[in-house]
Write a protein that binds this DNA or RNA. Structure first.
Length: 202
DNA sequence: TCGAAGATTGTCT
DNA sequence: GACAATCTTCGAG
């Protein structure tokens, strides 16, 4: 079998040990690999949002909130996952960034499916087209089988890790405001690949 | 112990 | 395009 990009080594710890805004931008084009439940599902990151620190009022770990049981993983080491449940129905996958004891993270908002589309389709109850598989934070978590049990999981080992993928040229990266947040909604901390049909929302 | 709010999605009009 | 579903978390009483 020929070499696949998904056989590459996981991204190093140093990749995540930077400000969330830089990590969010750098995550575009990287590849998420899941072997949860024994099935391999792979997707390329095409959309991400940064939650940059305690001064970010839209963050779950904003200063007015402080450290709680829910956001505890955000205070952990860079490179671990922060998985939370939203609206009582959906899981969302974040990557913890910056440094330990400092709450910053990047929300993975959309993937372009690369492998295991049949498994994704089986996990996702309602799918009209391939674009519906991973075009949203709750959707991609369901498609990859991600649940709260992966909170604080280190993203350099099975069953969920991130490897280097094809780089996205700067001219194809769009920067805009975050989606769905009710505070600090005008901060330009959302990044996505221009023209990619798997982005959650234009 | 209770009540309000939420980094979304799916369905209906 | 608008709105309900659904339940965990957190702050107040």
């Amino acid at each position: 079998m020929t070499h696949r990009s998904t056989d590459a080594l996981p991204l190093p710890h140093s990749f995540y040990a930077r400000g969330a805004e830089r990590v969010a931008r750098a995550l575009l084009g990287q590849v998420v690999v899941s072997t949860i439940g024994g099935a391999r599902t792979v997707g390329r990151i095409v959309e991400a949002e940064a939650y940059v620190g305690p001064h970010d009022d839209a963050s779950h770990a904003a200063e007015r909130v402080g450290r709680t049981m829910r956001n505890d993983a955000m205070f952990g080491s860079p490179g671990i996952a922060y998985v939370y449940r939203i609206y009582g129905a959906h899981w969302c996958l974040n990557v913890v960034t910056d440094r330990a004891e400092y709450p910053a993270a990047v929300l993975i908002r959309a993937l372009e499916p690369l492998e295991g589309q049949d498994v994704m389709r089986a996990r996702r109850s309602v799918v009209r087209s391939e674009r519906d598989l991973c075009s949203g934070p709750g959707k991609l978590a369901q498609a990859l089988g991600i649940t709260g049990s992966l909170n604080a999981h280190s993203l350099d080992t099975a069953p969920l890790w991130i490897v280097e993928g094809p780089r996205v040229p700067a001219r194809r990266v769009v920067t805009c405001t975050r989606v769905g947040v009710t505070r600090a909604h005008d901060w330009p901390l959302r990044f996505y690949e221009r023209g990619n049909p798997h982005v959650s929302r234009w």
